[in-house]
Amino acid sequence: MRPGPMNLITDVPGIRVGNAKDRKIKTGCTVVLSDAPMTAGYHVMGGAPGTRETDLLAPDKSVEAVDALVLSGGSGFGLDAGSGVADALAADGRGFPVGPVRVPIVPGAILFDLINGGDKAWVDNPYKRLGREAYAAARDWFELGSDGAGTGATTASLKGGLGSASIVLPGGIVVGAVVAVNALGSATVGDGPQFWAAPWEQGDEFGGLGVATAYPDGRPATKGHGQNTTIAVVATNAALSKAQCTRLAIAAHDGIARALVPSHSPMDGDLIFAASTGALPCEDLLWLGHAAATCVARASARGVYLAAPAPGDSLPTWSQRFGR
């Protein structure tokens, strides 16, 4: 298995990603789109999720495909980013047909970045605007680190960020992930620069430092309760049903556990969406899930590794702390 040419979720044919951010507020959102509606599922393993339109992703619900998936900062305020994306989709004539009307289907999830040093004294909720801007920016290549939904993200001791990674499987199937890392725990091992995700690193995509030689015992470092949540989208061109997308999302959560310690706590809302463009037959859901988990782990480390400093930050970046 090898990364795709861009090592981004957009290596999956037909997938596009758009980011928008507000530097003053220290927040942003990320939208994942495809050329046609996507089959999708999701799974939550954190105890405090914030979501939009996720019930319809259950395999027994009647809507078979979604028009976009949205990851956003802003806690409950950030759910409005999906409204901006829905407005933009409707203006482009996309959505679930109901008679003469089309209703865009836009599930979303949020992370908490409200006390990260940004100016949150807004009068009007900014997230609908950010959702429209992210939709307009959707393309094959997009920025990582302090951008999109990762703009204001943090971990226990470092700035978080937006990461992405991909894997090309035999037969042309591609799996990719985009992750907004706003973790209760840490992406790095103890006080050192090595990443928990190091065993799955491809080349030097997050520094090439290898695995840590010593591991901390006792209770791991964490940040404030209620200030967390890592959210992600995994996508593939393998044809999957809604039930299979749900299984893919469940398997992909292993990547969060491999990359962020601790994870899936009662005080965060760790959530993964899984989407299929349906272009190629799926011959092995087991290995597709393993590939998705590996991409999520690598993308999580890349998000922290590529975070950029900004005025008023509450935490240093990986590069500031470790000088690389």
Rank of each mutant, 00 (worst) to 15 (best):
G4R: 11
V12Y: 07
T39Y: 08
H43A: 07
G46R: 01
A48S: 10
T51W: 01
D55Y: 12
D55W: 08
D55C: 03
P59F: 08
D60H: 15
D60M: 09
K61H: 12
K61Y: 14
S62E: 14
L69K: 00
G74Y: 03
D80L: 13
G82K: 00
A86I: 01
L89K: 06
G93D: 00
V101S: 07
G108N: 07
I110Y: 02
N116V: 12
A121C: 08
V123E: 15
N125Y: 13
K128G: 14
R129Y: 06
G131F: 02
G131V: 00
G131H: 01
R132I: 02
A138N: 10
D140M: 09
L144P: 01
A149M: 08
A156D: 00
G161A: 03
A165I: 10
A165S: 14
S166K: 08
V168T: 15
P170A: 13
G172H: 12
V174W: 11
A177C: 07
V181C: 06
N182F: 11
G185F: 04
S186L: 07
V189C: 11
V211H: 04
Y215D: 08
G218W: 06
P220I: 05
T222D: 00
H225F: 15
H225G: 05
G226P: 09
T230Q: 04
I231W: 12
I231F: 04
I231Q: 04
A232N: 11
A238D: 05
K242L: 06
Q244R: 06
C245K: 13
H253Q: 14
G255Q: 11
R258P: 01
L260D: 02
P262N: 05
D268L: 03
D270H: 00
I272T: 07
G278R: 09
G278E: 03
A279H: 06
A279N: 07
P281M: 05
C282R: 08
D284H: 13
W287E: 12
H290F: 12
A291N: 05
A291S: 09
A292T: 04
A292L: 06
A293W: 02
A297H: 00
R298F: 03
A301P: 02
G303F: 00
Y305V: 01
A308Y: 06
D313P: 01
Q320D: 11
